[in-house]
């Protein structure tokens, strides 16, 4: 089973490396955009999927990351410096936004984070001196690595892929470390977790802050990709889109956001034939999906596997003993 998984991962990675050579410029761009959004969705998956704290603010964090990168790189600073600043900023703002979660949950938290996204959007739109207002910032440069310019789409794709793999590996490490267990403990039973010594207050704040930092990283990758950012890229609708990626893929599953982001990014491409009806079909699909499989695609898959396993007739002595307890 484990070998199978590793084999699968290697195959997917190989696919991702070959992919841009089979695609035209546009295909590569869509793939890059999938990588970028997966990073944002991964962050939200930590906050929501692992730690159980709903957030509608991920687009705002992408915005903070994207504007930091755009402003700093356009001023001639290196990309990596802008990433550090953008992620750091998001981490701090995420910590602050986490505070409401210490008091309120569920729908209240959804509204607070929704209000935050709207406020962030207003600042991006109205503070023209900094953000360029509704016209946004044009001409965000792409970084160069070791003197090699990444202006070419395929090269930037590989750069994004590299950062994406780093981000995924760190995420994997995080959620499989004791911290990941503490996040899940917070989601499953905060009172019990607290009584076992888990500082639930700190863990809640960290879940927001780290999730936000991933949002910032995603924004820092996005700005050079599209080379033009405006407030409309970071509205509530985009937050919802990221939330959708997490929920559709399977929130709380490591690969959930990968799959979810893929679907959400690719679906418009497949629905092109529908033209004006695209958004309608899209929305109807979401409603349908939520009704038939509320735990997302990976949730459905894992329940399916569990169901098949439990049908195995093997009768075990220790199970019998256990049944008596």
């Amino acid at each position: 089973m484990k070998q199978l998984k590793i084999l699968g991962l290697v195959a997917i990675l190989a696919g991702l490396i070959i992919a841009p050579f089979t695609q035209a410029t546009y295909g590569t761009y869509v793939l890059s955009s999938w990588l970028v959004f997966t990073v944002a969705a991964m962050g939200l998956n930590l906050t929501l999927g692992y730690a159980g704290q709903i957030s509608l603010a991920q687009a705002a964090f992408m915005g903070i990351g994207a504007y930091s990168t755009a402003l700093m790189t356009m001023a001639g600073l290196p990309w990596i410096a802008s990433v550090v600043v953008g992620m750091g900023l998001c981490f701090v703002v995420g910590l602050i936004l986490g505070y409401p979660a210490l008091r309120v949950q569920n729908h209240f938290l959804a509204f607070v984070t929704l209000a935050f996204t709207t406020l962030a959007f207003l600042v991006m739109r109205n503070e023209e001196w900094l953000t360029g207002g509704i016209y946004g910032l044009v001409g965000v440069p792409r970084p160069s690595v070791a003197g090699l310019s990444l202006m070419d789409g395929t090269r930037y794709y590989f750069f994004t892929l590299g950062v994406f793999i780093l981000a995924s590996l760190s995420f994997w490490w995080l959620v499989n470390s004791p911290w990941g267990r503490a996040f899940k403990g917070l989601r499953e039973n905060p009172i019990r977790a607290n009584s076992l010594g888990v500082d639930t207050r700190l863990v809640t704040l960290l879940a927001f802050a780290i999730g936000a930092a991933y949002g910032g990283l995603s924004g820092a990758l996005m700005a050079p990709l599209v080379q033009y950012i405006d407030p409309m890229s970071f509205t509530l609708i985009i937050s919802l889109k990221i939330l959708l990626m997490v929920v559709v893929g399977g929130s709380g599953y490591f690969f959930g956001p990968f799959l979810g982001a893929g679907l959400v990014i690719m679906l418009p491409e497949f629905l092109r034939f529908a033209e004006a009806y695209y958004l309608m079909i899209y929305a109807a699909l979401v409603v349908f999906l939520m009704v038939v499989c509320p735990s997302g695609l990976l949730g459905l898959l894992s329940r399916g596997i569990a169901a098949i396993r439990s049908r195995e007739p093997a009768e075990r002595g220790d199970l019998k003993e256990g049944a008596q307890l």
Binding site: P178, R181, A182, R192, L196
Partner: peptide, 29 residues
């Protein structure tokens, strides 16, 4: 009062882990 979506083993590890080392040694350990 258990953590329903975690294995029994993980329940017990979670019950003990916060008493082991510091936050950062746990993250990198």
């Amino acid at each position: 009062s258990v953590f329903p979506e975690m294995s029994v083993l993980d329940n017990l590890i979670l019950a003990g882990q916060e008493h082991r080392g510091s936050m950062f040694s746990r993250l990198f350990g």
